[in-house]
Design a binder for these strands. Structure first.
Lengths: 178, 178
DNA sequence: CCAGTAACTTGCATAATGCAAGTTACTGGT
DNA sequence: ACCAGTAACTTGCATTATGCAAGTTACTGG
């Protein structure tokens, strides 16, 4: 079934899901970040059906997440290595790992992120690169960006994320269509 | 089709995907974080078929992401509000937003995260809460946690994320099964 | 030269999804 | 009291994706 629009949506989340929203995609990227590159490594790790894996890998290559690279000529063999875009996805993986550990690991975490120097578990929090302030603070809010359509702007105008005051940078709202 | 195991996996990512891995789930949570609570608000915002929305909302309630709460007795009407767990998912949404903006917004961002004081766009990066160091540094690595099985530990032992040295905290590897 | 294996691809039954239409239970106007 | 309008779902059916088993191609090792 046509998986609905998504690609045409303006939302960065929707566009992200276009690329990695399929069931296995995120787990494949997780494994790729863990250093796996070969078809059979992924298959072994995930217990995924080979045809599914073929499709998902092809989709990830098409989405620019992985690069398919020949590592043997006779027989032709390929490996799948993360692109810059794929490696950049690491922050999403970190966020999901932290969230998963907080909420779905009653028996204790089975995957930790460690600080290699201290050997202590790292506790990942988002900060603004410039102000260094944690994004959990109420002083952050979403706003329509320069490329926002009227509809997107109208939706975000009603947003609840942070304060919903009007801000200098939060322009683009012209009329309410939603 | 039974969407494979996932729940039985130890990986926090897999467990997270169990709850929010369905196509629409993340977009619904995004909208909930934007302040939407009613069935028809979600439907309007997403353009989702009502039966799909019914299922996804029910699944999210069951997963403990949303709470279904009656706001009218005659006629019985319900609204869906985020639980603590659902609100905590915000960091994942932030990560995806940032990643999506970086890679799939050639015409410029349409959704921004703003610092409400300066009015400037925020650039979210992960840091370790304790050391305050960005997690992009090579000094961070994944390791099996206290609850890791042999198989999980073996997989992570070969990991490539950071250095793959053995660390005091990274115990649990007894034999290699993978 | 033949068995064994890595790395896929193909086919088919089955299960999930999207859409349109139907249902239930009000509210508001006359 | 009656009828249109609307919110919030649910049902049914055609379409599409998934998982599994089996097949294919191309080596390698003895």
């Amino acid at each position: 079934m046509r998986h609905k629009n998504l690609g045409k949506m303006q939302c960065p989340i929707a566009r992200s899901l276009e690329r990695v929203g399929e069931w296995w995609s995120i787990l494949i990227i997780r494994d790729a970040l863990h250093g796996l590159t070969r078809f059979d490594q992924f298959q072994e790790s995930l217990g995924i059906a080979p045809n599914m894996l073929t499709r998902r890998l092809a989709a990830l290559v098409k989405a620019g997440m992985l690069e398919r690279r020949r590592y043997s000529d006779r027989p032709p063999r390929y490996e799948y290595v993360l692109t810059e875009r794929g490696r950049d996805f690491r922050s999403v993986i970190i966020a999901m790992t932290a969230w998963g550990n907080r909420h779905f690991a009653p028996e204790g975490a089975s995957v930790l992120l460690l600080n290699a120097r201290t050997g202590k578990p790292a506790d990942p929090v988002f900060v603004d690169r410039n102000s260094k302030r944690p994004l959990a603070d109420t002083e952050f809010l979403v706003a329509p960006g320069p490329a926002a359509s009227d509809r997107t702007a109208a939706k975000l105008a009603a947003s609840d994320w942070g304060a919903s005051r009007r801000l200098p940078a939060a322009r683009g709202i012209r009329k309410s269509t939603a």
